[in-house]
Each structure stands twice: as C-alpha cells, then as structure tokens.
C-alpha cells in the first residue's frame, strides 16, 4: 500500500472519501465475554455524530470544486442504513467493508482495512474523517489511515481556510496555538465538531437515491489478502476486561475551623489533581 494508489491532481474531478461509522445509539454496552470484543449488533444504532461534520465539509467542497463524495465505512451490513442517510444528504457513493474477518478490529486493523478500502474505491484526493467516534473515543483512526497510505494529515481541523484543485489549507486548533496548514493532495484531514452545520436530509434526494446501491466489500475484495492484517487477529491491542467506572463520589462535609476546612479542601483538590 502506498500513495501511488491515490488519485493525483491530473485527475480532473476531485474525489473525496468520507470515513464514517455507525455507532450504538445508547450508552449500554454488550461485551463478548470470551474475546472481550464489543458486540455491535445489539440495540439501536445511529451515525457517529462527529462524522456528519466530515460529510458536510466534503459536500461543501464538492459544491465549490465539483467532483464526487464517497462514504466509506466498516461494519455489519446494517450500516447500509447510515450510508443511505448519507445519500439523502448528498453523498454520491457508498462503500461498506463488511466481513466477519474484519470483526474485532482495533485502531491498526480498522485503519488498515479502511486504507485498503480507499484503494479499492480507486483512491482519493482528499480523505475526511470526523474527530472521533462516540463509542471508541480514540480519535486515532484518521491519522492511522494517513500513515498506511503514506500521505500527510492534519488533525483537529476547525475550519477550511482555502481549498483549490491542487491543495487545501486548514485551520487546526492545537491547544495553545491555532495553525494554518497547507497540504497538496492526496491528504487526509480530521474535522472538529461545530466547524459547520450538517445539512438536513433532503426528501428529493431520498426519492432520487431510493434505488441507489451501496457497494459491499468483503475480505476477498481486499488487495492485501494477508488475513493476519485484519480483524481481531490483525489487532495488536486486546481488551482484557471491561468494567464500570468507579462510583461517583459521595457528599463530604468538611469539619474543623475555617482554616482547617480550607486546608482539607486544598488537600482534596490537589489529591484529585483538579488544581
């Protein structure tokens, strides 16, 4: 896998891939007791809310420069629902990587499968990811995809400063500084929430895209047929156990003189590293 698979600027139509994920709607979590992997099938699902900002960003760039927006996801076939929703917002194509062999993937295996998916999709000029998912919360898959594809990335993008046929300039919020970074295509960005307002689904598009097919890719479609790169086997991290977080603290009345109370509070706050 290398940057050669990605589309270069001589290609006229800008091609954008948006990586999205279907996540559990609630916060209740089921865990497979044998493998420690999460069971994703139970319960209601929704589109990872952070990914809507990625999709909106892509649609806005397409409105300016033309081209296509492809949604890429990995998960069970139920993710079709999410991709169809993306069609009603304006996405042109949708691809789901769905295979038991992909299940139980961590950051490395997930990002590898997605990077393979990018290749199968014919590459991209620009790849856009949301800042993180609401279930995994890692915010690591985007930069990892960029590394697999050997392309530069900018994370925590809070605004698009300029976008042309050749390059994109983005504003990044890096804690104490804001940085404006310019990258030539192909490149990847992860966008922050609230950088734009995701559009509502359109009824017209819903009708128009009713028959539109979502492309399902399995392990057999992957260019790299090394099974040890995917899913649980391809994941160097293993969840040893899951447990409920420590109980919320109970109420404490501090005793003694005013100064003793202040001393006690100070000890508690420094002990909890709040100050």
């Amino acid at each position: 896998m290398s940057a050669c698979c990605l589309r270069r600027k001589e290609v006229q139509n800008m091609k954008i891939i948006v990586c999205m994920k279907q996540v559990p709607a609630g916060t209740k979590v089921d865990i497979d007791p044998e493998t420690g992997a999460m069971k994703r099938l139970s319960g209601a699902t929704r589109t990872n809310p952070y990914d809507l900002f990625a999709l909106e960003t892509a649609l806005q760039i397409r409105e300016k420069l033309g081209g296509t927006v492809t949604v890429l996801t990995m998960g069970p076939v139920q993710a079709e629902e999410m991709v169809k929703d993306a069609f009603t917002m304006g996405a042109d194509e949708g691809i789901i990587l769905s295979d038991k062999k992909f299940a139980g993937a961590d950051v490395l295996a997930t990002s590898y499968a997605l990077s393979q998916g990018v290749t199968v999709a014919g590459g991209a000029d620009l790849i856009i990811c949301g800042r993180q998912t609401t279930d995994g919360d890692t915010a690591q898959v985007g930069p990892a995809i960029a590394e697999h594809l050997h392309i530069p990335h900018a994370a925590w993008v809070s605004g698009i400063v300029d976008v042309t046929e050749d390059a994109i300039s983005v504003r990044q919020d890096l804690a104490s500084v804001t940085q404006v970074s310019k990258m030539q295509y192909p490149c990847l960005i992860t966008v922050d929430k609230d950088m734009c307002v995701p559009r509502l689904p359109s009824y017209i598009l819903k009708k128009a895209t009713k028959e539109k097919q979502v492309r399902i890719l399995t392990f057999n479609d992957m260019p790299d047929q090394d099974l040890s790169r995917y899913g649980l086997i391809g994941s160097p991290t293993a969840v040893e156990r899951m447990f409920a977080p420590p109980e919320v603290q109970k109420q404490v009345y501090l005793e003694g003189s005013a100064e003793e109370k202040a001393d006690a509070l100070f000890e508690i706050l420094t002990g909890k590293k709040i100050i």
Binding site: L108, D137, A139, Q140, P143, A144, H153, P236
Partner: peptide
C-alpha cells in the same frame, strides 16, 4: 493524539489512546 497513531501504525503495533 495526532502523532501517536502515525507512529504506532508505522511500527505495526498497538496504541491505547
């Protein structure tokens, strides 16, 4: 969190965020 995933991926190893 922008740097770590690139490094872990390059060394084909695990990263806990």
């Amino acid at each position: 969190r922008s740097l770590a995933p690139r490094l872990a991926t390059r060394f084909h190893t695990g990263l806990t965020a």
